[in-house]
Design a protein around this nucleic acid. Structure first.
Length: 497
RNA sequence: GCCCCAUUCGUCUAGCGGCCCAGGACGUGGCCCUCUCAAGGCCAAAACAGGGGUUCGAGUCCCCUAUGGGGCACCA
């Protein structure tokens, strides 16, 4: 059991195509957990060899997403490292040099087929027919020297079977006759993924390639390229992917509606989780639990706890439907789990976003009452926003809020008027003291607790749903609580008159 | 069309030949607790895709079929 293995280096190598998608993050997370488990490094490399698809600002978004989730990166374009640059468009000379080396060694060849010719071949049903595979070397070099447009293709074996070891699936086998002579270097001098990632993973000493299953079909190609270079191969793990919540198709890149998720808009981009009020701890916990499990039936665990147990061999090879409903539960678990003061500081932005000017010491007193009743940080505004509105502006809520079930205006007014002197008489205005006084009143008056407590709740909070009434009053203070109750009494007077 | 990978409750999963008339979790339903909303506790319904093998014994191994996912680009 290697607690430390300096040789372990895993990486996340996304294309900079915009906001970070949760599917990509999940793949990255498994590589990250693996690296951390073995005391290794986790590297970020930007694969921007397709100029058309690159989106400005993507790197910043990736870095922000990882920072928010608490996944630290050891080397990358934003932090540097010994094996940079970590952006492929800055490594072009490497790819060209190695592509030419493969041609010289006879492992690859120049292909002068035009786009029209290729379209023709595709139309005919089969792929590229390898027409330049045996093109004489001298003519090939001559045409290239004349500046004739060409790509460099890899010479795949024409027969036999290629076997590879996948850490998750075990041995996988492919019939070489099915494989094509893939393009390594495009006519614009940019490499394809196939060439670039191998040159980089070798140069950056990557020990374990963790990537999504869609790469499995090109695994044999990559294996042959590694062999052609004569480089020591890393280990491979092809990770399962996330499917839409209904299990149909890969999880969509775009935010969208899913019937199976109750018509709710399902978050898929990292910033959507943040703005929806999910805790990063909950999001990471959620993702870690898909395709991998803690091992002792525990569902709620920290990153550190997961790291201590993580193994790629334990990853479930099957793709999974995106179990988004579980995230709400996990989020509420995490909201209960963090310290109340920590919750307070995380709640502040949500309140401010809702337009409240937040008094931090007040928020610290309110936070404990919210801990068991928030599913999302965003729920704080409807539940407890009233604490942060200007108290001077407080107005009694309408009668339909004040009057509880099976009660009328007169009865409600009577309850509030009776409570007033009882509360006023309390020297200790703690929730417990209030509860004792009011519960005694309810019992002696023959009223249900619900009717009494509910009337008070509505009077002081202005809401039907709120944190526990006596907690609310304790936080508001005796004077403010009494003032609000009197306001409610007055409102009911006019309702009756 | 060809190739690859996968297949346990609605969903996420445990299970690596006997400990499984299949366990946990979310969700759902019920009960309890309860000042609202929650949280919490208890209970319930709910699955080994189908068919062949191998074996004393199969959810676990093999084959076929079905279904799902992915790939077959000068995208990654």
């Amino acid at each position: 059991m290697p607690a430390r293995d300096q040789a372990v280096r895993a990486r996340y190598a996304p294309s900079p195509t915009g906001p970070q998608h949760i599917g990509g993050i999940r793949s990255a997370l498994f590589g990250w957990l693996f690296a951390r488990r073995h005391g290794g490094q986790f590297i970020l490399r930007i694969e921007d060899t397709d100029q058309k698809r690159s989106v400005r600002g993507s790197v910043e978004q990736i870095v922000e997403a990882f920072a928010w989730l608490g996944l630290d990166i050891d080397e990358g374009p934003h932090v540097g490292g010994d094996y940079g640059p970590y952006v492929q468009s800055q490594r072009l000379d490497q790819y060209q040099r190695w592509a030419n080396w493969l041609v010289e060694q006879g492992h690859a060849y120049r292909c002068f087929a035009t786009p029209d010719e290729l379209a023709e071949m595709r139309k005919a049903g089969r792929g590229y027919d390898r027409r330049y595979r045996d093109f004489p070397a001298d003519r090939s070099a001559e045409q290239a020297a004349q500046g004739m447009a060409h790509v460099i293709r890899f010479k795949m074996p024409l027969a036999g079977t290629t076997r590879g070891k996948d850490l998750i699936r075990g041995e996988v086998a492919f019939d070489n006759a099915q494989l094509q002579d893939a393009v390594l270097l495009k006519s614009d001098g940019f490499p394809t993924y196939h060439l670039a990632h191998i040159v980089d993973d070798h140069a950056m000493r990557i020990s374990h390639i963790t990537r999504a299953v869609e790469w499995l079909p090109s695994f044999p190609l990559h294996l042959h390229i590694w062999e052609a270079f004569g480089w020591e191969k890393p280990q491979f793990a092809h990770l399962p992917v996330l499917l839409n919540p209904n299990g149909k198709g890969k999880l969509s890149k775009r935010r969208q509606q899913f019937a199976d998720a109750g018509g709710k808009s399902v978050p898929v981009l990292v910033h959507e989780f943040q703005s929806a009020g999910y805790l990063p701890e909950a999001v990471v916990n959620f993702l870690t639990n898909i395709g991998w499990n803690f091992g002792d039936d525990r569902e709620v665990f920290t990153n550190a706890e997961a790291i201590a147990r993580f193994a790629l061999q334990d990853v479930n090879p099957a793709n999974s439907a995106y179990p988004i409903a579980k995230l709400d539960w996990l989020n509420s678990q995490w909201i209960q789990r963090i310290h109340a003061n920590e919750l307070a500081s995380r709640l502040k932005p949500a309140l401010e976003a809702a337009g409240y000017a937040v008094d931090e010491s007040l928020l610290r007193r309110v936070a404990p009452t919210l801990q068991v009743r928030l599913k999302s940080l965003r729920d704080v505004a409807p539940m407890a926003g009233f604490f942060f509105a200007d108290w001077n502006d407080f107005a009694a809520p309408p009668a339909e809020i004040l009057i509880q079930r099976k009660m009328d205006a007169a009865g409600t007014r009577h309850i509030l008027q009776s409570a007033l002197p009882l509360l006023a008489a309390l020297d200790d205005f703690s929730p417990e003291a209030q509860h004792a006084a009011i519960a005694a009143y309810a019992a002696s008056s023959g009223l249900k607790n619900g009717a009494v407590f509910g009337s008070l709740r509505a009077a002081v909070s202005g809401q039907r749903v709120s944190p526990p009434t006596f907690d609310v009053m304790a936080i508001l203070g005796k004077a403010e609580s009494l003032r609000r109750i009197k306001l409610a009494v007055a409102a009911l007077e006019t309702a009756i008159a």
